[in-house]
């Protein structure tokens, strides 16, 4: 805004008055709790009796405690399923669909994006059914003669975590595909024609034209899906409750578990703050990479 319009425009105090209602609620119910979480993370507190100041001990525990290390390890596995697989599948599907102008694309988009708008509780109820001993995964296995592989998937000590991960793949793949399709549709068609005249095949076309063109969309897709993986709480709560044992426990679930079931509020806060920092750093890093390349 130029200085001329500023002299005519509303005063700075009017501007502040417009921001104030939002700021008050936001400060009271988001910024203040965030600060309080940092504060709480420095104490040993069971939520009832007097808290003892322990300095950074709760953060040391995040690194040394077996259960918490396992939880962060599980989050890494979920990142593969929530972000890695959807990105690979999404890239492949979007590239193929972008090459041939097929009909029914709007309908396809509506369908594959649908998992994004369903409450995680609903998603959890559906997948618990699919993974149940008499569910459709086992039914398909027996139908192709692999019935011996059937099991209660979410109760399996090794396969429960990948099983939860596949649900994440299901939720995120549509989002990534739709995002990449939008990016690819903006690539001018004559670029492809020129490449084809040069004799480039589908694969070279993909790596030399399509992939570089959707770098920005890829950055966004990775940010969204990695953060979704790190924030996973509802899904674990509904499908496995962190079990069997703690095989599917993740940081977000540990925050809840420690604060409201185990009475380790300080530790819960430290896990929460660590998670917030990790998410913040990933966001900054991806934003920076995206900006440099585009």
């Amino acid at each position: 805004m130029g200085s001329g319009s500023r002299s005519l425009g509303p005063s700075r105090w009017t501007a502040l008055a417009y921001v104030l209602p939002a700021l008050v609620v936001y400060a009271a119910f988001l910024l203040y709790p965030l600060g309080r979480s940092v504060h709480l993370s420095l104490f040993d507190w069971d939520g009832l009796s007097l808290a003892t100041f322990v300095g950074l001990a709760n953060y040391v525990e995040v690194v040394t405690d077996e259960g918490l290390r396992a939880a962060f390890g599980h989050a890494l596995v979920l990142i593969v399923f929530f972000a890695g697989l959807p990105t690979v599948i999404g890239l492949a599907v979007a590239a193929v669909l972008n090459r041939a102008k097929v009909r029914g694309l709007p309908f396809f988009r509506t369908v594959v994006f649908l998992p994004q708008v369903l409450a995680m509780v609903v998603v959890g109820v559906a997948w618990r059914r699919i993974y149940a001993p008499d569910g459709s995964v086992n039914a398909v296995l027996s139908a192709v003669g692999l019935g011996d592989l059937g099991r209660a998937w979410l109760g399996d000590t090794v396969l429960a975590l990948p099983a939860v991960g596949v649900i994440g793949t299901w939720v995120q793949t549509g989002l990534v595909t739709v995002l990449l399709l939008a990016g690819m549709s903006r690539v001018p068609g004559d670029l492809y024609e020129a490449a084809r005249l040069d004799g480039a095949g589908a694969v070279r076309e993909f790596f030399s034209i399509t992939l570089p063109a959707v770098r920005g969309e890829l950055a966004v897709a990775l940010t969204l899906t990695v953060i979704a993986a790190l924030k996973t709480f509802d899904l674990v709560y509904i499908t496995t409750g962190g079990g069997p044992g703690n095989r599917t426990s993740v940081p977000a679930f540990e925050v809840y578990n420690r604060a409201f079931r185990l009475g380790e509020v300080g530790s819960a806060a430290a896990v929460g703050v660590t998670l917030t920092i990790v998410i913040f750093v990933i966001n900054l890093a991806v934003a920076r990479v995206g900006r440099q390349r585009t």
Partner: peptide
């Protein structure tokens, strides 16, 4: 970017 988990405990 702030996850719900971190604000819900003190709240």
């Amino acid at each position: 970017t702030v996850p719900t988990e971190v604000i819900v405990v003190p709240l």
